[in-house]
Design a protein around this nucleic acid. Sequence first.
DNA 1: TCTTTGCGAACAAATGTTCGTTTTTATGAA
DNA 2: TTCATAAAAACGAACATTTGTTCGCAAAGA
Lengths: 189, 189
Amino acid sequence: MELAITKKQHIINTAADLFKEKGYAATSIRDLASKVGLEPSSIYSHIKSKEDLLTEICLSCATRFSNGMNEIFFQDITERKKIKALIHLHLEIAYENPASITVFNDEWKFLHEDAMAEFLESRKDYEKKFKKILTDGKKNGKFSFENEDIAFNIIIKMLSWSYVAIKKYNKESLETELTKFIIKALTEK
Amino acid sequence: MELAITKKQHIINTAADLFKEKGYAATSIRDLASKVGLEPSSIYSHIKSKEDLLTEICLSCATRFSNGMNEIFFQDITERKKIKALIHLHLEIAYENPASITVFNDEWKFLHEDAMAEFLESRKDYEKKFKKILTDGKKNGKFSFENEDIAFNIIIKMLSWSYVAIKKYNKESLETELTKFIIKALTEK
DNA sequence: TCTTTGCGAACAAATGTTCGTTTTTATGAA
DNA sequence: TTCATAAAAACGAACATTTGTTCGCAAAGA
């Protein structure tokens, strides 16, 4: 219980699996309890509320993205390399915790006030930095696109498909393929 | 009530709005009734069940895609033109019924047995034809990619972003931009 | 009149959560 | 090691709400 994983964390991970499978709203505490091997009431020895679970899942992913972005953003490398590093980051996080990242991606709208605010703020910062990289690359003549908002969102969507593709492809080949598509899409023909 | 739109259709459209906003599982018949201006029980004068609503929404979109695909697929035009026509199709459907297509995209997993089977079959057919166009284009040397499955899914994901972007961009400029990105991603650099 | 549409009350089931109590685990002195 | 004790974890029963849906009946439209 000390070396391995905390029971709370195990409950959260199981919740992520269920939220991914059935969706947040359609997953009950009883579902979760039975999958963890506890009675429903016992869950509340470890968490405050159902929404707490979602909050932990979403914000821990947000933090990972935020940290990863900051590491990349402030490096002195080309924008192309930064984009490649960001693709790598997405896949790294996805392969590490496939369920969480899917919940992070699809179920965040069920977050409540404070957690939602924190989530959105983190996302806004991520988006801002991502777009900065894109427009810098455009200024340097490395990238070619009309609208950075569209470019950003399209890339994010391509990456978010990878969360689904994890079972089918290994990390390296998926990363290679995704990188090719994204770089081609960004580059002048 | 005759020239315009049937009341059942109005209920379905309102349901689509709610399912899009709150998700299928989190939307109650009481929510729907109150938004339509009826008592909950009156809803059942028009529909069989809550899932019926989802079925109508998802399968009507599926039919539109299926018809659109067949029209394009059997034409004697280049693969590049077919892809462009498919992009156009997605945007056409999206701008016509933004709520439905979002539900179609995000909430189909709540379909039950028969409807689910029909949905999946339709989707499989669509995917098969889409991939055929891609691989034909590859054979002709027009497209360049390693894995048609990845190529297909990435394109679909880019298109699915447009369902969200509808409020921000007009159809023509969004289509132009999306087409550029997708064609570039598919074309040898 | 007959059919469609709408209503209000009620239903059984499922939901998130609380509460008091028991069981288990960790702690630290004898 | 032993035992008492405190803290943590698990339990069972119960709660108030919300859920999808049904049913008998009234109103409206054909």
